[in-house]
Simulated assay, not measured.
Amino acid sequence: MARSEKPTQELHLSQQPDADALLSRSPLAALVGMLLDQQIPMEWAFAGPYTIATRMGADDLDAAAIASYDPDAFAELLKQRPAVHRYPGSMAQRVQQLCRYLVEEYGGDAEAIWRDAPTGADLLTRLKALPGFGDQKARIFLALLGKQLSVHPPGWQEAAGAYGEPNCHRSVADITGPETLAKVRAHKQEMKAAARAAKPPK
């Protein structure tokens, strides 16, 4: 598989140079990393696409190849130590579901989701239609596209909601290095603490 062109903008979400390089040049890798970003540390999730590609013997991810991979064998790829996710079996299914959808709807071209999106609202709708992408995950990824990958359809910030606001540290969209990673992690911990405090006593 041919290596993609070097990106003009670089992501620093996994804090691992090789994994971040893949995220930067591969739209599919960025989507898969976002899909994996739940119930595990953010940098672990975004290192996942590189681990998957390496175990598949490739230097990039290919939606068609993942979609057609034997499900049991693909699950084993994610289960190998170190595991790609805390729940590698279920996440293997979700990654394959995402890739099958991309093959069916976009010819396997992940970037086509946002390449010609006429508005931010339309792009949000497309992202929310992806398997495994709920409203919050779609808005965060939209903010990541806008803030770090220069994807700016009209109204993208409004569609991303609070995650699209400048100079904040709410999500992976705001991570550009170790310092901002620490700020985002602190924000998430504050939100969890506030949610616990808001729960009525048993």
Rank of each mutant, 00 (worst) to 15 (best):
G107T: 01
E105T: 06
H169K: 09
P131L: 05
S171Q: 04
P118G: 15
V103N: 05
R115E: 12
E105L: 01
Q148W: 08
I140C: 12
D59Q: 14
A58I: 00
Y87T: 03
P71L: 12
Q157S: 14
R86A: 09
I66S: 02
G132I: 01
R55F: 13
Y69E: 04
L149S: 07
Q136W: 10
Q97D: 14
L145A: 13
G134H: 10
L123Y: 08
E76K: 12
R170V: 00
P118H: 15
Y106K: 07
G108P: 00
D116G: 10
V84R: 06
Y69H: 15
Y106E: 03
N167S: 13
F141Y: 14
L149F: 14
C168F: 02
L61P: 00
D109P: 00
A162K: 13
L98Q: 04
I113E: 01
D116C: 12
A121G: 15
L123H: 06
K128I: 05
E158C: 04
A75D: 04
M56A: 09
R81S: 14
G132Q: 03
Q93H: 09
W156G: 05
R170W: 09
R94M: 08
G155K: 10
E104A: 15
A83L: 04
G164S: 09
A138V: 02
E105M: 07
Y106R: 08
L145V: 07
G57R: 10
H169R: 12
P154D: 14
S90Q: 14
R170Q: 09
H85K: 06
D109C: 10
Q96S: 09
L77H: 07
Q93C: 01
V84L: 14
A138C: 09
E111H: 13
R55S: 13
